[in-house]
Nucleic acid binder design. Sequence first.
DNA 1: TTTT
DNA 2: TTTT
Lengths: 155, 155, 155, 155
Amino acid sequence: MSVNKVILVGNLGKDPELRYTPAGAAVATFSLATSERYKDKEGQSQEKTEWHNVVAWRQLAEICGKYLHKGKQVYIEGKIQTRSYDDRDGNKKYITEIVADQMQMLGSKGNEGGGSQRQAEPRQQRPAASNQSQSTPAYEDFADPPFNPDDDIPF
Amino acid sequence: MSVNKVILVGNLGKDPELRYTPAGAAVATFSLATSERYKDKEGQSQEKTEWHNVVAWRQLAEICGKYLHKGKQVYIEGKIQTRSYDDRDGNKKYITEIVADQMQMLGSKGNEGGGSQRQAEPRQQRPAASNQSQSTPAYEDFADPPFNPDDDIPF
Amino acid sequence: MSVNKVILVGNLGKDPELRYTPAGAAVATFSLATSERYKDKEGQSQEKTEWHNVVAWRQLAEICGKYLHKGKQVYIEGKIQTRSYDDRDGNKKYITEIVADQMQMLGSKGNEGGGSQRQAEPRQQRPAASNQSQSTPAYEDFADPPFNPDDDIPF
Amino acid sequence: MSVNKVILVGNLGKDPELRYTPAGAAVATFSLATSERYKDKEGQSQEKTEWHNVVAWRQLAEICGKYLHKGKQVYIEGKIQTRSYDDRDGNKKYITEIVADQMQMLGSKGNEGGGSQRQAEPRQQRPAASNQSQSTPAYEDFADPPFNPDDDIPF
DNA sequence: TTTT
DNA sequence: TTTT
């Protein structure tokens, strides 16, 4: 009896992070920028950027991990989800994420943004150790119903 | 060069809050529940509810303030926006909101939820003094480009 | 590399038609009205109604056939598809349809429109013989890739 | 009380046609391809292309006429509209169009498709005489409420 | 053919 | 805090 749908077209701020749950489920996370032009009070054209935390699971995570990179323009369809976690100081914090269920790469050839990779081939996998995200806090009590990754989430 | 679009169909958890900026711009805020059914590991049907902070401005705010109420089912179209504020303890916090640019009341007659008002007529205006939101922190440094409410935001 | 998405909220003009392909795949069709208010040149408020041909397949078709009825308000998500057929006079005609992949009933209790059934229980199944649609022409050369109903479509 | 929304990401099949109503309102039309991959019965990957007739009005029409061209990838948001007309033989025909209310060019630099123009600058205006669309029939009885172009539509 |  |  309800709808929770998000549609984004934007560019990745960094290469995506691809990790695996202990049970082996792939999870990709990346931040996506959308920007909006507007006129300020002086009539000057300004730009405001919104950063979205995007999460993809399983097969879609693998695809994101392989083919997306910093600067890439993508279409994302998903839902909004807010989860809470405790930071190092024990404060409860909330983070809102977009759980992607569809992704389309846009501007195929030549629109590879400012990223370090520009080829259409899969990005090279970086070692897991250097793969720690700074931006997204760890899931402490995770429960994403549709996918049931019944164990710790690696971010 | 980007798209930031949200589509929600859900029910209001409470009556909306309607306030005015010093410059006279109307602002309505309300929380909207969307829920999702899923099967847990035991195969039991479960429900997970997501709460969305919705903000409407100007004419749309007036309409929301007048016609929406607790339990009402609505269609919302808007964009995702995250702003930061400092809580009482001086900690920087972030809140993600849906800035509505379209609202449609659904299920008109008879689907008035569990709210206190059930008529199609405007809800009675409550005194501004009792109108303080608990749920949404004050805007300290607000800048919503399209609307430019150039002064303090009352929540 | 592309997106084809439709989101509709409207009311059924008639009860849906539920049929089965020779291979046993369920197909539901119904027309859905969306309407728009506008001011004419004289400043009079007018209404313009748009009728959408909606098609649902398989499990979603069964649900539509069982629970939807004339007047019911629904949310539909799907894609636009145009197919051609030859009418009785041998003229090539085109019909644009919305192939639904998600449906949500709205305004649950009390918003059952002007239909003949108002209960939440499944609508009674009518005999297949009386089930011929007037409104949607027969598929002659049908190919809906995702579903591959590899045989004649009964409308 | 209803929603009629379309979201497309696709590529233009030709340069857009830009015309003006007698009253001076700009109208741009173009066809947009979206395509979908699927597996056929033999498990072979196939592609199915859907062509959408897109119409834009006024300022958006001018922008489309100036900056879009064959092959360009765009994001379109709008509504579905079906209108009827009589063809040369006096047969009533129906055409379904997407009336755009938002357009975003995608894949900015380098993703200019197979078109004849590849620069970011405005396309050169072609003489109106050579501007007759083959693909979209003339409006005979046109009434687009929000815009009220109160005269003949040039296609 | 629906609904407000 | 809603709704089914």
